[in-house]
Amino acid sequence: MNPLLKAEQAVLGAALIDPGQLSHLDWLAPDHFYRPVHQALFAALRTLRNDGHPALSADGPVPLSWVTDAVHEAGLHVRGLTASYAHTLISACPRSEHAPVYGRMVLEGAIHRTIAQHAIRLHQAARADAVQGEVKGALRTADVLAGVLADLARRWGTDPRPVAPTAAPAAAVTTVSTPVQSDQTAEDEQFLLAVLTEQPRAMDEVVDWLRPGDFADPAHGQVYRCLGALHHRGEPIDRITLLWEAQRRGLLADGTLSGEQLTAIGDGMVPGSAEWFGHRVMRSSLTRTAATSARCIRALAEDEALGPGRLINHALHALGPLDEVRTRWATTKGSPAPKPTASAPSEGEPPPARVQAARARSTPHPAASPPTRTGPIPAPTAARRPSRARP
Rank of each mutant, 00 (worst) to 15 (best):
L5A: 15
K6G: 11
V11F: 10
G13Q: 11
A15M: 08
A15K: 00
D18G: 03
L22A: 13
S23D: 12
L25N: 03
L28Y: 07
V37Y: 00
H38C: 10
A40W: 06
F42L: 07
L48R: 13
D51G: 08
D51W: 00
A55G: 02
A55Y: 02
L56Q: 04
S57F: 06
V62W: 04
V67T: 09
H72R: 15
G80A: 08
L81V: 15
H87S: 14
I90G: 02
S91C: 05
C93F: 02
R95C: 08
V101P: 00
E108A: 15
E108N: 15
A110C: 07
A110Y: 15
R113A: 13
R121I: 04
R127D: 13
D129K: 12
G147M: 03
W156D: 13
P160L: 09
R161A: 15
P165T: 09
A170Y: 12
V173Q: 10
P179W: 10
P179S: 08
V180W: 01
S182R: 14
T185E: 12
Q190W: 09
A194W: 02
E198V: 12
P200L: 00
D204P: 04
V207T: 13
V207R: 13
G213V: 12
G221P: 05
Y224V: 05
L227G: 08
A229Y: 02
H231C: 00
P236M: 05
I237C: 09
I240M: 13
R248N: 07
R249V: 01
L251W: 10
L251S: 00
G255R: 14
G259W: 01
G268Y: 04
G268E: 02
M269T: 11
W276H: 09
H279G: 15
V281G: 04
T287R: 09
R288V: 03
C296F: 14
A299C: 03
L300D: 14
L300A: 14
L306V: 00
L311V: 06
N313F: 02
A315K: 00
H317Q: 13
G320Y: 09
D323Q: 11
D323G: 07
V325Y: 11
T332D: 04
P336A: 10
A342T: 12
A342V: 10
S343I: 11
A344W: 06
P345I: 04
P345K: 03
E347V: 13
R359L: 15
R359M: 12
R361T: 14
S362A: 13
P364W: 01
A368E: 14
P370T: 06
T374H: 14
I377W: 13
P378D: 03
A382P: 06
A383Q: 08
R384W: 11
R385C: 00
P386Y: 01
S387E: 15
